[in-house]
């Protein structure tokens, strides 16, 4: 009988089963395989490199310390499940810092793009995109990140966020409307330096 050794060819779900048996090798393979991808996700959710770093670390360490939270149901996909962990952790982080009031829209966020680390790497258009996304309510921003940037289907994104499909579609529609309004307004007022936030 082949011993429970992890290999690079193992699927994510197989690696999770090995992690549940205490395989550090399986955990290492999974971390190296997905760190880049989930760091990008965490960065888009938090808008901050340091917080993205913390989010990814905490999420991976959570599954190492409590591997039983992974339910090996038929058809359960690791990446979708991990997205859910990241999204929930981000929400918890925002609530603890007092930047989120239930499902209420955030007040307009200060320009995260103004941090020195990002300003040196981003062009003007990218700064405006970050400002536009930061102005969205958190749930709209999350829906947009999952569907547009992570490539999840609407059904998968709805599952990650714990909402119904129609609710997700509504979030996406409102997000797009908010972004269009933001760009249109800032385009018109660029010379005056006026900034516009959406709610």
């Amino acid at each position: 009988m082949r011993p429970d050794m992890a290999s690079q060819d193992d699927s994510d779900e197989s690696l999770m089963r090995l992690i549940q048996k205490g395989s550090h090798q399986a955990f290492s393979i999974l971390v190296r395989r997905h760190t880049d991808r989930f760091y990008a996700t965490a960065f888009r959710l938090s808008g901050n490199a340091t917080e993205a770093d913390d989010l990814v670390q905490e999420a991976f360490l959570k599954i190492w310390q409590k591997p039983t939270i992974w339910k090996d149901d038929k058809g359960a996909k690791f990446t979708t499940w991990f997205y859910r962990i990241l999204v929930n952790m981000n929400i918890d982080r925002l609530r603890k810092s007092g930047r989120m009031a239930g499902d209420a829209a955030l007040e307009y966020m200060p320009d995260k793009a103004d941090s020195p680390e990002m300003q040196t790497a981003m062009n003007e258009e990218q700064v405006m995109i970050e400002q536009a996304l930061a102005s969205l309510p958190e749930r709209q921003k999350t829906a947009l990140n999952l569907c547009f940037y992570e490539g999840l289907s609407n059904a998968e994104a709805a599952d990650v966020m714990g909402v119904k499909l129609k609710a997700l579609e509504s979030l996406l529609m409102r997000a797009k409307t908010g972004l269009k309004d933001f760009f249109a307004h800032n385009q018109n007022n660029r010379d005056t330096g006026e900034r516009y936030g959406t709610r």
């Binding site: 971390v31 990002m118 981003m122 996304l133």
Partner: peptide, 15 residues
């Protein structure tokens, strides 16, 4: 949209 650069040692730190 700006694509962040992943810290090179992040995976190893987590492991």
């Amino acid at each position: 949209r700006f694509a962040p650069q992943v810290p090179k040692d992040l995976a190893e730190r987590i492991i």
